[in-house]
Design a protein around this nucleic acid. Sequence first.
DNA 1: TAGTGGTCTAGACCACTTC
DNA 2: AAGTGGTCTAGACCACTAA
Lengths: 255, 255
Amino acid sequence: MAGMGKQQAGRVTPRYQEVADAIIADIAEGQFKIGDMLPTELVLCERFGVSRFTVREALRRLEEAGLVSRRQGSGTIVRATEAYGGFVQSVHSVSELLQYPPETRLHVARSGIVKLDRRTARQLGWRAGEQRVRISGVRRVSASGAPICWSDIYLLPDFAGVVELLSKQSLPVSALVERRFGVHARRVAVELFASGTSEELAEPLGVAPGTPALTIIRRYADANDRLFEASISIHPENRFTYYIDLQREWTIPAD
Amino acid sequence: MAGMGKQQAGRVTPRYQEVADAIIADIAEGQFKIGDMLPTELVLCERFGVSRFTVREALRRLEEAGLVSRRQGSGTIVRATEAYGGFVQSVHSVSELLQYPPETRLHVARSGIVKLDRRTARQLGWRAGEQRVRISGVRRVSASGAPICWSDIYLLPDFAGVVELLSKQSLPVSALVERRFGVHARRVAVELFASGTSEELAEPLGVAPGTPALTIIRRYADANDRLFEASISIHPENRFTYYIDLQREWTIPAD
DNA sequence: TAGTGGTCTAGACCACTTC
DNA sequence: AAGTGGTCTAGACCACTAA
């Protein structure tokens, strides 16, 4: 009879979860090895005495966990037997990616068009000789506080317009580009390494030349993999720490 | 009539995708704002002339994209209107998280039980006075190459057994703990900041005291949020760069 | 051509939230 | 008590894959 709704009263674990767990156990026990085909959905329906909906819901979860992959017309294949996935760091916005507290602000020291020298071009992932807009300055908690870092931000010449916006809004440059020109960062590469504070930056940063510093290079690419923004930031010691919090992507429930 | 399968021949876009796109468009146009309730599933069924399965499949996709969240008994609420999500960094294993090339190897200089002093305890997230196993040494590309870093690795006393394993296998300590004791890292926190090379470490690292260095602190917590391993690594300049590659989590297809 | 997974319908009961 | 989303059934047609 159609639409019978055979679910038991008081059930705590959904039936599809039980089916999923049973299949996971089979895979863990070696009943199915990597590369093996799982039984068809119809067979699984009969074996567990459930409808196709329930079996598909179970398989959907196994697929999300990366344990199996399914192909129309072909079948379901076992992809992994391990119960643990990789790690993911979640960053919810560009501002969060920068990791500077919201009460900080970039104080522009100078801005204008520059031609990239060989060293800078290589660091940023562009070609030497190309023209870019450069915005430079220090980031401070308040107008009087000690600088957190010195930043050189490079943009494609098309986006020169953000320089004016910067004086009005204290948003990350990439957020301004997003808002003003509709260019969205799809990939951001971050590179962190140690360096000494250079002669030129020692004074604006208020430290002695050679003071240990954390240098961060960030590169922003759009949907077409065009590198539209890059920046170099120098953080003297004791002023800034970069945090990364990684979570296990998924975990198969213990048996 | 039940089970009629009204799908048109030659359909390219699934009906649930059309429904999802229509709702996305409504949200983008401001028809629904953040915090608003979406119509109930039954209402959406009537409005689009589809079954509940199709509506739920559409809503599932919106939920996966973070645009809405659903609560049993309560309804579906709009969570975001933007077509772009956050960023994610994917790390596929603990070894990948360390970012040391596979051809490098930790050369243990000393190991044993230590009592945590106040400063170290605070840095690592434990309490002062607690006992830990400490493994210290340099990481090198080859036995003769310049050290990449000095590492102090701290473990709960239960895991002292990994010290022996370390001499046989050149795996990350956390991987050995995972293999030997079945304790899996569920969360890893990474902290990067600038520091100078201390007097004691200058000699083993082969640099002058005070040389700028990148310090990385890593903390490993298991499924019960128990901090079972933590490490401090000091990388003198020009020897190591930490990379993070962030990808946009999801993107709503352009209209 | 047979069989797989993908989509879809109509209908039902359930757990949960809110009034 | 009414209404929401969550689970589940039985049955159907479809697109795709492989023999």
